[in-house]
Design a protein around this nucleic acid. Structure first.
Lengths: 229, 229
DNA sequence: CAGTGGTCTAGACCACTGA
DNA sequence: CAGTGGTCTAGACCACTGT
C-alpha cells in the first residue's frame, strides 16, 4: 500500500501533535502533498477535509491550509436512551410514571417553544431507577397540537422518551447543561437532601421549526457525564 | 447542477426525518441511488458516509444500509478558551493567579495521571472574571516531568490554560462534567454561598500516553453549557 | 488574475460478509 | 460465491479569494 488517506491524515496529524508544525504554520497545498505522498489529490483532500472537520486545521481557498492558532477542540457526547445507559453499566432499569395531565402552556414555556396561548400540552413527570436506586427525574411537556397521538399512549407502560424516539421523527434539538439545587420535591424523588447539587439537562426537540417536546432531566447526586477525544 | 452530494444527503435525510423511511428500513444500494439521482457512485457514497458519521444510518458491506433503529444522536460542544468565551459574550476578561507551588503528586491524583510517587508537579489556583464578576475558579496541576519549562513561566502574566494551549501539543483529552456543592473556599472566590450548586469540569490532557496536566474548573452559579444540532 | 480548495466523474480494485 | 460498501485514481471544472 502506498498512501491511503488514513496514512496521509495520520502523518499530518503527527506533524501537528509533535509540535513540528506549530499553530499558525502553513501546510503545503493539496497538489504538492499529493506528489509528496505519491497519491491522488482526492486522497490528500479527504485527509485534510477530515482534519478540518475535527478542528485541527483551517482551510481557505487560495490562501491554503494552516494549523489552527487555537485548536478549537470539540467534545462529542453520545445521547443514549437512559435504559441503555443504565443497562450498559450493568444496572437494572426501572421506570415509573408519577403524574400526567393535559394543560395549556405556562407563561415561561410558551415563548421557548413558540406556542400560542391556547396551545394544548401533555405534562407528565416520571422517575427512572438503576438497580432500585433513583437515577433520574424527568419533567416533560409534549406538544399535543403537533403530536395528538400522544394523548392515547399509555405512559404507564412506556417512558415518554422511549415512545418519542421510536415514534416521532425530529430535525433539531436544543440542549443545555447546568447545576441546580434540589428542591423538596426533587429531594424526595431522588432520595437526597434539599439543596443538594444536581446535574440538570434541558432539551427542546423540533420538527421543521415546530416544537415537539420539552424536557427537564434531573440526575441523582454523583452523576457524571464523560467523554474523551 | 444535477445532484451534488448535499442534494443527495438532504433528500435521504428528508425521507428519514419525515418518517417515510422508518427506523430499520433498508436503503437502496449506492449503485442504485447513483442511477436514481443521475450522479456518480462516489457522490452518493459521500452523502451516505456523512449520514453514517452523524449516526443516522448504519452501513455494512454486503448487507447494505439501513436507517438506525435508535438514532444514537451525538451532541458536539466547542471547548473554547475562556477568554474568548467571555469576550464573545461581550464581557471584559480578567485573570488572576491566586497561588502557586511545587509539590509531589497527592495520592488521589497519582493513579489518575499514572505518575510515579516522586513525580514533581506544579500546583496552582487562579480565577477568571467576566466584567468584574467571578466567572470560573481553576485548580490546576502541571506535570513538571513532562513539561519542565512550566517552572520558568510567569503565571501572573498568562493563565496556565492559555500558556498550555499555545505552547504544548497534546493528543488525548479526558473530560467529565458534574454538579458539585461549593465549599467555603469556592464560595469566597465565586461570590456565592457554601453549598451552592456549581457546574464542574474535570479534564486530563495527555501526549502519547504521558500526562501533561489535570485541571478542575468550577463555574460561578448560573453557568450554562449549551449546544444544538 | 491566478492559486487553492471544493466537488464531481467514470472507472477500477479490494475487503468484508451474508447467503 | 457474489453483492455491497470502502477506497483510490486521473482528470476535470468551478468557486472563492488573496494579490
Amino acid at each position: 500500500m502506498r498512501a491511503s488517506y488514513r496514512h496521509v491524515k495520520e502523518d499530518i496529524l503527527r506533524h501537528i501533535t509533535s509540535g513540528a508544525w506549530p499553530p499558525g504554520s502553513a501546510i503545503a497545498s493539496e497538489v504538492d502533498l499529493a506528489s509528496q505522498y505519491g497519491c491522488a489529490r482526492a486522497t490528500v483532500n479527504r485527509a485534510m477535509r477530515e482534519l478540518a472537520e475535527e478542528g485541527l486545521i483551517e482551510r481557505r481557498r487560495k490562501a491554503g491550509s494552516r494549523v489552527r492558532d487555537v485548536p478549537v477542540r470539540q467534545a462529542r457526547f453520545d445521547i443514549p436512551l437512559i435504559r441503555e445507559e443504565i443497562e450498559h453499566r450493568g444496572g437494572r432499569y426501572k421506570y415509573a410514571l408519577i403524574a400526567q395531565q393535559n394543560c395549556t402552556a405556562p407563561d415561561w414555556l410558551r415563548p421557548r417553544l413558540k406556542l400560542k396561548a391556547e396551545g394544548r400540552l401533555l405534562h407528565m413527570t416520571c422517575m427512572h431507577y438503576a438497580s432500585g436506586a433513583p437515577y433520574q427525574f424527568e419533567d416533560r411537556w409534549i406538544n399535543l397540537d403537533a403530536l395528538p397521538e400522544a394523548e392515547t399512549v399509555d405512559f404507564d407502560q412506556i417512558g415518554p422518551n422511549e415512545w418519542l424516539i421510536q415514534m416521532v421523527p425530529f430535525t433539531d434539538v436544543d440542549m443545555s447543561f447546568t447545576a441546580q439545587a434540589a428542591d423538596e420535591v426533587l429531594a424526595a424523588h431522588l432520595d437526597c437532601m434539599p439543596g443538594d447539587p444536581l446535574f440538570h439537562v434541558e432539551r427542546a426537540t423540533w420538527h421543521e421549526g415546530r416544537a415537539l417536546t420539552y424536557v427537564r432531566l434531573y440526575f441523582a447526586p454523583g452523576y457524571r457525564m464523560a467523554t474523551s477525544y
